[in-house]
């Protein structure tokens, strides 16, 4: 037990995590590519058309995974942030920092694909639907997180302050979602929702599942890549970074 704890502590140090992440990244890329190809093959080539929505429904193979990821990443980010706040792990703040831009990107992609889905389905680019509105607010929360981080120069303070913000955000996301939903039903917005089709064919489900898995693997790979850069940058005055750079130079020479 204590042995395992020590192991965890070891990998929680940037020094040990940096090479480990470097070894894991290619595997996540491979998985992302494999799942992506399978998912897109099923979604775009095999799956039959949707009776009500026509071929435009295929956008959901992109839209739904992007929306899921934008939400998951926020929760994961808040989890890392909270861990950092509670136990003062150096790694957690860096992970939260590495996840934020990817989450924001997925939130943007979700809005973009949602708009392109809405135009043929609803006849308009934007509907004040509860989901779309919450997604927009989620993007604002990401932007706030990134802006707060980049405004604070001291990385430790930036870690802690943005962690508080992420936790406040994660408590608020459900409140915001339900208030927007309430507002939406009062204003009798759209009765159509994005994942409406009640009897989604199993083929479609499989396609969606693989696309979602591909996005997961992609997000992990990208976050690991970014966290490595952040580690080098922030630990540049330590011995291990010096050794790492020297080794890289020797390998290239």
């Amino acid at each position: 037990m204590s042995n395992r704890l020590i192991n965890w502590y070891r990998f929680a140090s940037p020094q040990a995590f940096y090479p480990l992440a470097g070894r894991m990244i290619p595997w996540f890329w491979v998985l992302a590519a494999v799942f992506g190809v399978i998912g897109l093959y099923i979604g775009f080539l095999v799956a039959p058309t949707d009776a009500q929505q026509g071929e435009g429904y295929r956008i959901i193979f992109l839209h739904v995974p992007a929306s899921w990821m934008s939400m998951f990443i926020y929760v994961v980010m808040a989890f890392w942030a909270g861990l950092g706040l509670a136990f003062n792990f150096r790694l957690s703040g860096m992970m939260a920092q590495a996840l934020a831009p990817t989450g924001a990107l997925f939130a943007f992609l979700s809005l973009w694909t949602g708009a392109l889905w809405g135009k043929p389905m609803w006849g308009t680019w934007w509907v004040w639907d509860a989901r779309l509105t919450s997604e927009l607010i989620l993007l604002f929360l990401y932007v706030g997180f990134i802006a707060l981080r980049s405004a604070i120069d001291d990385p430790r303070r930036a870690d802690n302050a943005s962690a508080v913000l992420a936790l406040v955000g994660v408590v608020n996301v459900p409140i915001i979602y339900f208030s927007v939903k309430w507002w939406n039903t009062l204003h009798q917005g759209s009765s159509v929702s994005l994942t409406k089709s009640p009897s989604m064919a199993t083929t479609m489900l499989w396609g969606m599942l693989f696309c979602a898995l591909a996005c997961w693997m992609y997000a992990i790979a990208v976050a690991l890549m970014r966290v490595r850069t952040i580690m080098l940058e922030r630990e540049r005055n330590t011995e291990w970074v010096r050794a790492e750079i020297a080794r890289g130079e020797a390998a290239e020479a």
């Binding site: 071929e55 435009g56 295929r58 956008i59 992109l62 839209h63 992007a66 992609l109 973009w112 694909t113 392109l116 889905w117 135009k119 043929p120």
Partner: peptide, 9 residues
């Protein structure tokens, strides 16, 4: 719409 989503993503 489909390819607009796909390409941007």
């Amino acid at each position: 719409y489909v390819w607009g989503s796909f390409i941007v993503m």
